[in-house]
Amino acid sequence: MNAKAVFGPRIHVEKLVFSVTPDARATKFDAFVEHSAPSPASRTDAWNHYRQGWAQRADKRGVDLLVLVPDASGVPRDHWFVEVKDFRVITTPPRPSNLTKLGATVAQKVLDTHACLQDAAAHASVPEEAQFSQDALAAPSTHVVLHIETYPGGEHSRLFPAPAVLAANVKGTLARELFAFGATLRVCLGGSDMRGYPWAVEDAHPPSASG
């Protein structure tokens, strides 16, 4: 339970690894990792301020990952809230996808995370968390990214949602929920062109290695 919050260039989220560009700072905010999910113990590397206080107060969940990109002079410029939905993670018995609630769920996580950052900027006991919060809140541009690893079988169906259509539909529901938040929204599909994002994504356990 004493694991430290993770800050660094490579962040594990579920089955994925996010590698941010050299100028960017990334931190795991509230992400499970695949090897220990779904045990709550896997949250021990989430933010201390979130884990110790914020998450205890109510039914609050944070986004998986935060990324901060400075401008050329080092001043915080872009703050990214990143949430991952990996349809490839199949449990026994299978969990419903809850796709209809996905937009609202992600939106609530973003709002809760934003509220936590405001609290942490003044009260976080871990200096790195306080500093990151202050920098993130000072960044003039805010972005929300939902990274979707597509569900199995979808690519074989002609009638049912091509992943891009799925992404557009989910983005529609997310945009409605976050209309007043003032962030740019993106829904990114796994395996798609990552230009324009300050990170690259790869599988933590490539299928060939895991058999």
């Binding site: 018995p93 799925l166 539909n169 529609g172």
Partner: peptide, 24 residues
């Protein structure tokens, strides 16, 4: 608020995905 045309598309996708996954 609610936009039936969009919400029903997402709901249909949900039914499809859950069927593919064997859930629901």
């Amino acid at each position: 608020g609610p936009l039936a045309a969009l919400d029903e598309e997402v709901a249909q996708a949900e039914r499809y995905i859950d069927d593919e996954l064997g859930a629901g």
